[in-house]
C-alpha cells in the first residue's frame, strides 16, 4: 500500500519538476558569481577552451589553464591577463578621481600547466601541483578534444586509441583528481564539453562518436552517483553543441539546401550559451535548441525512420567531405616532405 503512496508522491514530484523547469525557462535564474573561484580548463590553448577562459576571466575567476601545447596555452594566458588589466583600469580611475584610498580589489591570477590529459600520471601530478600552488579547485571544465579524421578501416590504431583517451578516459582522471575535495567541501561544478555527436552518430567518425558518447555516459553516470550520495552542493553541466566553427571539422557539411537553416555555430555564441547554463546550474544544454528536437525524434522513431531523417538532412554522410579534405591535406604534406 505504501508503494502506491510513494508512486503518487513521485508523480507529484515529477509534475512539479516539469513545472519548475518551465518556470526556469520563462524566468531566467540569477547567475551565480565565480569571482575568486579556481577554474581548471582542459584544452585551454584554442577553440572553445580559449573562449571559456576569456569568459571566466571577465567574471574574475582565477584560471588554471591546461593544454598540451605550451605556446597556445601561453597565448590564452596573455589574453586573460589583458582582460584582467582592462577590468582593473576603470576601478583605478574611479579611485583616482574619488581621491579616497580604496582597499585594493582581489587580484585574480592565471596559471598555466602543460600536460597531456590522456596520461594518467601527468594529470595526477599536475593536479597535485595545482592544489599546492593555486588552492582547491571549484570548477572543472573538461573540454580537451581531438579527432583522428580517418575512416575506421584506414585509421591507425594509435589514433583511435588517442581519440578515446583524450576525449573520454581523460575525464576519469581529471574528475578523480579533483572530485574528492569537492565532495568533502560539498562545493564544486564539473562541466563536460561534449558534442551533438555524443547524442546521435554519423558515419565516418566512429572513434570520435564513440568517445563523445562515452563522455556523456560518464557524465550522466557520475551525475547519478553524486545525486545518490546526496551532495547537493556539487553541480554538473553537460554542453552539447552542434558543429562548432573552430576548424576541427573543417569541410564537414550537411545538405546544401539545409545548410542555411543549420549553419555551423559561431564559437562565441556557443560559449555564451554554455556560460549561461553553467552559471545557472543547468544540467544540460544543447545548442542550438533544435538538437533537443532531433534527440527526441531519435528516441521515438524506429531506425529506418531515423535513417530517412538523417538522409533528408544529409547528416548521415556529412563527415565524408571532412575526411576527404583531411586526406588531401595529408597527401600534400607528404608531397612537400617528399620534395
Amino acid at each position: 500500500m505504501n508503494i502506491f503512496v510513494e508512486f503518487f508522491l513521485v508523480m507529484l514530484k515529477v509534475c512539479w519538476a516539469i513545472v519548475m523547469a518551465g518556470f526556469k525557462w520563462l524566468i531566467r535564474p540569477k547567475e551565480k558569481s565565480v569571482a575568486g573561484q579556481v577554474c581548471v580548463i582542459t584544452g585551454a590553448g584554442g577553440g572553445l577552451g580559449r573562449l571559456f577562459a576569456k569568459e571566466f576571466a571577465r567574471r574574475r575567476a582565477t584560471l588554471v589553464l591546461w593544454d598540451i601545447n605550451s605556446h597556445s596555452n601561453e597565448e590564452t594566458a596573455e589574453m586573460v591577463r589583458q582582460i584582467y588589466r582592462e577590468q582593473d583600469n576603470p576601478m583605478s580611475k574611479e579611485g583616482a578621481v574619488g581621491g579616497v584610498e580604496e582597499v585594493p580589489p582581489f587580484q585574480p591570477q592565471v596559471y598555466t600547466y602543460v600536460l597531456d590529459v590522456g596520461k594518467r600520471e601527468s594529470v595526477y601530478s599536475t593536479a597535485e601541483k595545482v592544489r599546492r600552488e593555486v588552492g582547491e579547485v571549484d570548477l572543472l571544465i573538461n573540454n580537451a578534444g581531438v579527432v583522428s579524421g580517418h575512416h575506421l578501416l584506414e585509421c591507425p590504431d594509435e589514433l583511435i586509441e588517442r581519440t578515446m583517451v583524450v576525449n573520454c578516459h581523460a575525464h576519469f582522471w581529471t574528475t578523480k583528481a579533483f572530485l574528492p575535495k569537492m565532495l568533502e567541501m560539498n562545493h564544486g561544478h564539473i562541466v563536460t564539453v561534449a558534442s551533438s555527436l555524443g547524442l546521435f552518430s554519423t558515419a565516418g567518425v566512429e572513434d570520435y562518436c564513440a568517445s563523445k558518447f562515452g563522455a556523456i555516459g560518464f557524465h550522466e553516470s557520475l551525475s547519478h552517483e553524486i545525486q545518490a550520495s546526496e551532495k547537493d552542493g556539487i553541480k554538473m553541466t553537460l554542453v552539447c553543441p552542434y558543429l562548432v566553427d573552430t576548424g576541427m571539422f573543417r569541410g564537414c557539411r550537411i545538405r546544401k539546401e539545409i545548410e542555411p537553416f543549420l549553419p555551423p555555430l559561431r564559437p562565441e555564441f556557443c560559449v555564451k550559451q554554455a556560460m549561461r547554463a553553467i552559471l545557472t546550474d543547468q544540467p544540460m544544454i544543447c545548442t542550438p535548441r533544435i538538437v533537443y528536437m532531433v534527440n527526441f525524434m531519435k528516441s521515438i522513431l524506429p531506425f529506418e525512420a531515423i535513417v530517412c531523417m538523417y538522409r533528408f538532412l544529409g547528416a548521415d554522410k556529412c563527415m565524408y567531405p571532412f575526411l576527404a579534405q583531411r586526406k588531401e591535406a595529408m597527401n600534400n604534406n607528404e608531397a612537400k616532405n617528399g620534395i
Binding site: S201, T202, E206, C209, F213, G214, G217
Partner: peptide, 14 residues
C-alpha cells in the same frame, strides 16, 4: 555505462 555508451555510438556510426 561509459564503455557501453561508446560501444553503442560505434555501432550506430558503423
Amino acid at each position: 555505462c561509459t564503455s557501453k555508451a561508446s560501444s553503442y555510438a560505434f555501432m550506430e556510426s558503423l
